[in-house]
Design a protein around this nucleic acid. Sequence first.
DNA 1: AGCGTAAATGGCGTATGCAAAAAAGACAAA
DNA 2: TTTGTCTTTTTTGCATACGCCATTTACGCT
Lengths: 254, 254
Amino acid sequence: MRATKARPVTSNAGKGAFELNQDAVRISSVVATRQATRSDELRDHLEEMILDGRLAPGERLDEMELSRRFGLSRTPVREAIKSLLAIGLIETRGRQGTHVALLSIPAIIEMFDVMASLEGLCAKLAARRATPTERAAMRAVHEELVKAYEAGDPVNFYKINQQFHDLLYEAAHTHFIAEQTIQLRRRIGAYRLRATYQPGRMLGTLAEHVRIMDSIDAGDPDAAQKAASDHVQLLGDQLTDFISSLPPRLNLSQ
Amino acid sequence: MRATKARPVTSNAGKGAFELNQDAVRISSVVATRQATRSDELRDHLEEMILDGRLAPGERLDEMELSRRFGLSRTPVREAIKSLLAIGLIETRGRQGTHVALLSIPAIIEMFDVMASLEGLCAKLAARRATPTERAAMRAVHEELVKAYEAGDPVNFYKINQQFHDLLYEAAHTHFIAEQTIQLRRRIGAYRLRATYQPGRMLGTLAEHVRIMDSIDAGDPDAAQKAASDHVQLLGDQLTDFISSLPPRLNLSQ
DNA sequence: AGCGTAAATGGCGTATGCAAAAAAGACAAA
DNA sequence: TTTGTCTTTTTTGCATACGCCATTTACGCT
């Protein structure tokens, strides 16, 4: 399955190397009409690789190597890198090449603080704006989450959990806030993944979700805000505890 | 005054056209060591132009024209545009060129919601962490602000007001949150500027700042958070009211 | 043998050229 | 006059080439 179908390439040697799922449309993209350029595709692809850990924090991103690997020239590679640079997913150290952003523990703590605020905001709005359909959808996904917990499937639990939060943002009927939240989630993503396996976290998540949904159903914005905010904060606390407990230099470098 | 001193240009025709103040270092940039590339310079320059209204929301950004205007090739121009695109300061409408982001009123409202949250977070942390020196600095800048108000100088008021908020972020001893806040402020900047002249806003600002500082000095994080959050929210309310009061199509298009 | 300096190398920033895609405009037919 | 289609033009996306910078490595000197 080629991603770029029937694109008339001029003189492209390694065209077969470029494989990524075209379907992965950016969630918050309102105007997804314009067809993705190769630069855009590469950006999304790299973002995904960083997100799921295939590109570890601190890892080098070599322009030339990426060019070869994905069968395109340096120009679109550089443009993709510029985009990720602006978001903060990667960082550049002078002329020494770009690396996947390496987050310090204080930075992660701050990110979770912000995340908690944003989630709280969403929950508050959701308590005021959620339609019955949206509330029902959240309950339904939560049931799935319970099943994943009972099945002892952390990977699936992680995925369904994201769906639950996506529903929350949707129920808040916002664009910008949801976008910001998701972007931030992506930025922490590489780290967050490693905390799902924490003992007791899944069970805690379930209880906290119920509290959020109950507050929303009760139409209590403040309670919903606090519930969602606390939920994220708890996750953040456990994650930072987890990271802190690792040996210093082995911390997530790989 | 050339911005790029002694940069050995290969074959640059319109080199004299590129004038921008090199000194304008990005505020939150911790590692400001790496020498700015032309792409970076252009990005900052465009960002500034958008911020202070020289480039109005909705205005077109033509790659070729920018190339000519700043005397460099399209490559760095495109890279700068990619960066601003990723931040959300500009947007692309199909193949019709890129334009300065045109924000809808709901979007602006959401942005101020987030801004209020972030500022609240900063104030909360500042109440716990601010050193005596930092508290004094805030008081001092506030005095300047009072002077600007008494002098009836809105432009200066706007600038000093930003300084006050920068001090608040500094007093919070954060990196990421401050960065996010400033980035968001820049994104709303083009609109915000136009609300400073609202009647009563300056006086309101002064009172609200006092409330924030008092809460911080009292070491009351929750009060500080609420004070700062309310402050931003009030500004947002007045701004959106102001925008709504404008004739529909003349809204900020120019 | 250690240290300082100079050459070499790899990689980054920028310029330029080309091709494709979409918008704009012109022209013809209804 | 309006609409549909074809042509032209504009502009974007990508490839490639080249010069410079930083790091590294090798060599000479102390």
